[in-house]
Design a binder for these strands. Structure first.
Lengths: 336, 336
DNA sequence: GTGTTCTGTGCAAACGATTGTATCTACTAA
DNA sequence: TTAGTAGATACAATCGTTTGCACAGAACAC
């Protein structure tokens, strides 16, 4: 039943040439004659030859596999990004190994360890909500595995990043609300360890100042992205003496959690209190009462860019020193 | 910067023993003395030794990698299933390579080819909407790669399957509607090539007969799962002289497409026409007007079972002949 | 006829681990 | 004392492929 492994040895035997000739022929080596090449290809096809990746890896030290670690696939943003990555990478003959951290540092570390032992050629990562230190990623670098971060990129470190223009998007969101006459605006941000949270805050801040809106310290909340924490924080906002008229949320999930909590408190979202968020998930199109507006971050494109950058680094000659790149992708505020 | 690969050879040198001793020590071979073992482990740890998977594969012909091909990760059902698969499989030291077919036969075939050339130890698949023939999967079997299908399993073939109890779920859904006094019930099914579509139809059919509900040929529609086709089919139903009072949909996405189309036609879903569907996606919890009820299919559990079955087959001794298994997981109708 | 330059091919040593068999030492039992 | 045995380790072949080097023959110029 089981096909015995076809090797170049068998091809060589069948043709009465040596295995080195076969190997070179299959690689289109210029020193091999045209006729020989044709014969080799014909026999290879006939025998259904599939090169053994292990042997190639052993010689070339390349797995043609890249590892991706991200919070969770169930978030459409990430599954779209994966699709972008896959499209770019599979075109170049690479495979993708995916691991979900589910926002747990421990899972993230496990994934990285597994990437090291399976010898991936590179890693694309979007860090977990718990991640504040990067020694585990440094470990990858020690093994010479290049890394590109996307969306949830670490701050403070010189690394390759692909991310949305969050500062501007946040600014734009606030301006959008201000144009509607809203003045008291809160922010339900994510964990402070993420650079993209700083950026949201910065855009928020800038906008408040430049547009002359009131800056209230208690309007600024950060959550660990869980439903529970989000509910708690929105409750705090609602309980204030002067609650905000609008909330800028870290992403659509946070907005949905918060909006549900509002409903439970008898407050009608987007009427009594307005919501604007990030991600612009396709599912929001099916909501009767989606966030007023959401920042489209072009996840697919981000995945593509990250993959392209990674491949570029992998393909760079070993002695070339590459400066870490910081690619910023423009976002777009979509009004629902 | 780049750590040179640490090999057992270096460990051997450091200790002044032979590489075979090191190899056996690392595998806890009984023939190696306790003291030697301890020393080997200590040095391995010190040098940060990571075994080279290629070399092991070359000898043992095992990649410790399994391939998963499914329609799309963005569907929460599938990302949940992946999570179940990952949890089971990573515990046994396996990796997962994921490929999305996006319901295209060509992409599915490409994924399988790539699985063959990367020598995965096994494959878990949920077939694309376009798939009607299975020769590409047979190809995998030719190479001795075991396959387990889940949810979207092929029909007519003797293969390993893990699937929901769809016949019963469909029956139950119809009974649920009948109990509410509904009599004219249509079905918006998926492509006929999928066994799970047959089963939906069978359950639907059985229920209509046993409950004495009218059987109308034009009430039975099948779609290719796309938004366009779904809109077209629901339009046909709405345009009938005696349109159905309720529609049983292939899954929540189909239901959402259909419901949106209804709205466009000025018909209020779940009031003018009722919807019941499959999948019970978490996102429906955020809808103001979700399908009236949805069949929970326990995707995570399905993924787990599929992974367990696959590992069991992989671990079975080569000469053992295994009967294909058909594992059925109970579903549950969740009323919203 | 001798050297030079191509072209086309083969030999054999890697890559890093596993594993059957051989070897060496020390100890026990007769 | 000596054969026998068990324990600990080493040797070397092997997995499938790549690749530097060697080599053979043909074509060409002088």
């Amino acid at each position: 039943m089981q096909k015995s492994q076809v090797t170049i040895k068998q091809i060589a035997q069948e043709l009465g040439v040596s295995i080195s000739t076969v190997s070179r022929a299959l690689q289109n080596h210029p020193r091999i004659g045209l006729r020989t090449k044709e014969q080799v290809f014909a026999v290879a096809k006939k025998l259904n030859y599939v090169p053994n990746p292990a042997a190639i890896l052993l010689k070339k030290n390349r797995t043609s596999t890249i590892g991706v670690v991200l919070p969770q696939l169930a978030e459409e943003f990430f599954s779209q990004a994966i699709t972008g990555i896959e499209d770019v990478i599979s075109e170049k003959g690479y495979n993708v190994v995916i691991s979900q951290s589910r926002d747990s540092l421990e899972r993230e570390n496990r994934a990285i360890k597994s990437f090291i032992s399976s010898r991936v050629d590179g890693v694309i990562a979007s860090i977990s909500a718990e991640t504040t230190q990067y020694y585990q990623f440094r470990e990858l670098e020690n093994y010479g595995v290049p890394i590109v971060f996307f969306d949830r990129v670490p701050k403070d470190v010189r690394v390759n990043k692909v991310r949305g223009n969050i500062v501007e998007a946040a600014y734009e969101s606030i301006a959008f609300l201000e144009a509607r006459g809203v003045r008291r605006i809160a922010i339900l941000n994510g964990p402070a360890s993420l650079e993209i949270c700083d950026e949201r805050l910065m855009g928020y801040w800038n906008a408040l100042k430049q547009l002359g809106l009131p800056v209230v310290q208690q309007y600024i909340k950060s959550t660990d992205l869980s439903r529970e924490d989000t509910s708690k924080k929105i409750d705090e906002l609602l309980a204030m003496e002067e609650p905000p008229e609008a909330v800028l949320c870290f992403n659509d999930y946070v907005a949905l959690y918060a909006m549900q909590q509002c409903k439970q408190r008898g407050i009608v979202p987007n009427k009594d209190i307005l919501f604007v968020s990030f991600a612009n998930l396709p599912i929001t199109a099916y909501l009767d009462n989606p966030p007023l507006a959401s920042v489209e971050q072009f996840a697919y494109q981000m995945g593509e860019k990250a993959a392209q950058l990674l491949l570029q680094i992998i393909d760079a000659p070993d002695d070339s020193v590459l400066e870490p790149q910081d690619i910023v992708i423009d976002t777009k505020l979509v009004v629902h």
